[in-house]
Design a protein around this nucleic acid. Structure first.
Lengths: 221, 221
DNA sequence: ACGCTGTTCAAACGCTTGTTTCATACAGTA
DNA sequence: TACTGTATGAAACAAGCGTTTGAACAGCGT
């Protein structure tokens, strides 16, 4: 009736689910979409795939989220915020304890995503990593322009490395992110192939140390 | 008539083009597809986009290449072969001149793709980089399994760094590729944003030195 | 002139996509 | 008990996709 060119925006999510499945349809769709995209990629998942896994109707995605893209954007925002909060918190702790230790600063950058691989946020991380390359324009634009969070690390590193020009710090931070992001989605089958099985998926703590050592070396300490 | 479930495979490409456009339709399609994919990504380019840019008919892609995927695969193969040949040649020269200089070996890995950005192979490089993440399954599988070329670099590095265990060499080579691949598709707008304009797209030689320095540092020398 | 061969073309095929429609079922409240 | 806003369902929508068809065309050797 009332032309709903705007967002549907149901006032409240939902008091309780109808069946014992696991949350309301809105939340089930959220999780189904996140899982499917993490598994099959942004371009390998259709609206119908999502609702099938969520046990919902095709119309549910547009009813609850307005569009498929907005659903994906909401997932991205939620997970990215979560990751950034963890990093920022770790960075703050680091700066209080030892503000001039660049290694500790870099560790705050690397640790959260590396350790997420082990727990139930493995899916969330995979989603985030895919978003960088495959995600819809709205998401990629968000990644490109929202750099507040990286700036914090750049600032911390610059003041811990006063002898290094700031642009040099940022170049190396950029390189460090390369190592990190390239390493994230790795399935390690290729690494094992090159190394004849010598490089196998190891303990995440060990991997993080390895990463950190390489990056610190790149920074020059 | 003769059921053509197999490839059409026209015996010879074509003696001459029909108009003064620039090569036969087959070649025009090749270049149009490469350019479009480099520009808009694998999932942002349709068969109709390709033939429109090539000045050909919709059926031409399937006539000349069998399918859209085979066209993309042929482009990938051609460009990847070209890149690998250049790297291998450079590596051979290096190993003859100074076989125990790991920096020179890494340079042979980094230099070709970094310098391609400047000349007309910029498009080819962009295509290759996209293929790694967005390409059809056939291409990504090829990237994953064909590691002969990386093995050569692993071998060279291992023998130049005898004190380093081979699996450690491969881990660091893996990290180095991360820096390289992450850096390739960068449009530098984001870097400029973080650095308030301090980090701008610079001379490619200078960028390569910067890359090389970071990677050598990561390796520990 | 003929047929043969490689190429182009407009049109259509079958399928999937994201989205919409409208009727219905369900709460909670008056 | 009726009313109201929320949620779900089956069905259909228009548009785009990769691919196929069958006819027309050019150039060529015989």
């Amino acid at each position: 009736m009332t032309q709903q060119a705007d967002a549907p925006e149901p006032a409240e999510p939902k008091p309780a689910a109808r069946s014992g499945e696991g949350g309301g349809a809105r939340e089930r769709i959220f999780r189904a979409a996140e899982w499917l995209v993490a598994e099959h990629g942004f371009d390998g998942v259709s609206t119908r795939d999502i609702v099938a896994r969520a046990g919902a109707n095709v119309a549910a995605v547009n009813y609850h989220y307005g569009s498929k893209t907005r659903l994906l954007l909401e997932i991205f925002r939620a997970r990215a915020t979560e990751l950034n909060r963890e990093r920022t918190q770790l960075l703050r702790q680091t700066l209080e304890a030892e503000p001039d230790n660049p290694r500790a600063i870099l560790r705050a950058l690397i640790e959260p995503p590396t350790l997420w691989v082990d727990d139930d946020r493995r899916i969330a991380l995979r989603f985030l990593n895919r978003a960088r390359y495959e995600g819809p324009l709205e998401i990629r634009e968000l990644i490109r322009t929202d750099v507040r969070h990286l700036r914090r690390f750049a600032d911390a590193l610059a003041s811990a490395l006063p002898e290094l020009p700031r642009d040099e710090v940022i170049w190396r931070l950029h390189f460090a992110l390369g190592v990190l992001h390239y390493n994230q989605p790795t399935d390690y089958a290729r690494l094992a192939l090159i190394s004849d099985g010598a490089c196998t998926p190891e303990d995440r703590e060990a991997l993080m140390e390895r990463l950190l050592q390489f990056i610190c070396g790149g920074f020059g300490f």
